[in-house]
Design a binder for these strands. Structure first.
Lengths: 230, 230
DNA sequence: TAGATTGTTAATCGATTAACAATC
DNA sequence: TAGATTGTTAATCGATTAACAATC
């Protein structure tokens, strides 16, 4: 019994990175299908819509501990609930946004971020012209308040959306204030103690992958044309 | 000889997805180090700074065809050049942004997107109040012009930053206009013909990974405390 | 019941890491 | 030269896919 429990625990700790990345995709997809009135769904339907392998979907679903019914499939709302639990969406994490430029504002206004477990509590900006203005439900605070706000509100996550040049300084300030995790949108590699979780958003990396895929596709089409001229 | 050439070609076509994702990270990192005056760098230095394995770095560098020097390492500017070639950054791809909200504006203003091979040529928005306004160097055009602009300028890539509800309609319009690839920031799964490359940005997915990592870390710390109370 | 779909074990595939000779 | 670092083969690790019995 004890061993079983330990295994279960490990299976969630040790979830493969690739599987973890797919989880929120399933979540968003299933929410969408649910709104369309779908209550039961098979692994092959999910797989087809998300361009995955049905067995992979079933393995991933197994990680949520939801069991499907042969011949019908999985209960959509059950999957949604268990994915939310798995991804800790119910346990709201307090966060601040540093940098109230367009990206910061876009994130603050992002519909349903709360639905993903993030509670944006404050926004900060260097620019005196921005301090005091409203962004969504937040009021932009001066950078000088940052440390105090982080400490007073037990902020765990900071979102960095300042320009490249300021990012490291902001990072240092956040670390000193006791932040636990940083979601970094600045296109720069931050230095921080190992105990701080840093996730770099890397918008350019994502673009590069698309760009490369497009290039390869065109190259292949070009080669095919040369090989077999119509 | 012919076989050799074919292998080389394949090695770039078949680059492992994970390796491809790391390439732009190396690129940004090396650019940063170059600005700091670094001209030569070893795989272990790169590995340490980016939290990778030195052998992995060497394997990745091998994909760029750059050869390093034992005892000194790799030439930084050579690596940068070859990474740019590999990622096709020199071959500017025409693109449009659909949706001139905060996210769209943030992307348009994103410093050095051109440096990543993307040439943002036009912005579109549904909102008559936004049409005609300036965003960076672009003027926002009405959605009704979309198809014509895409056709006239041989636009290959479209960036979708409209709200969820409008994303599928925009996608359909883009496909009809002959777009080849879509970089989708709307939190929704788009349906399009297989020939269209779609890359979903999925900001929430990224957050979820961070959130899960944080949760696991706290759980582990909690367990450790219980096991060995100080 | 028959048949579709699940859950899971085994096989395959692919990426990462270890080991080590080559070399500057 | 000695020693650090590369480039590459082989070993390991881990994720995906195939196969198939269980079951509704």
């Amino acid at each position: 019994m004890k061993i079983r429990k330990h295994q279960d625990l490990e299976s969630e700790f040790d979830m493969p990175q690739p599987a973890l990345r797919r989880m929120p995709v399933y979540y968003g997809y299933l929410k969408q299908r649910q709104e369309q009135g779908v209550t039961v769904i098979s692994s092959s339907t999910i797989a087809e819509d998300l361009n995955l392998h049905p067995v992979q979907v079933r393995k991933d679903m197994a990680l949520t501990r939801v069991v499907g019914k042969p011949r019908t499939g999985f209960n959509v709302s059950e999957l949604i609930n268990e994915l939310a639990r798995l991804l800790d969406y119910n346990n709201l994490k307090n966060a601040v946004v540093v940098g109230a430029g367009h990206l910061g504002v876009a994130l603050i206004n992002y519909k349903g971020f709360q639905g993903y477990g993030l509670n944006l509590m404050a926004a900060f900006d260097h620019d005196p012209a921005k301090v005091g203005t409203n962004v969504g439900k937040l009021v932009v605070s001066p950078m000088s308040d940052l440390s105090q706000v982080v400490k007073d509100n037990k902020i765990q996550i900071a979102v960095i959306t300042v320009p490249q040049e300021q990012a490291q300084a902001v990072c240092d300030q956040l670390v000193a204030a006791g932040i636990r995790a940083i979601w970094n949108f600045a296109p720069i590699h931050l230095h921080a103690p190992e105990s701080i979780l840093i996730q770099n958003e890397n918008i350019a990396a994502s673009l590069s992958v698309l760009s490369k895929r497009l290039q390869d596709k065109e190259l292949q089409e070009g080669l095919r044309e040369k090989a077999q001229p119509s």
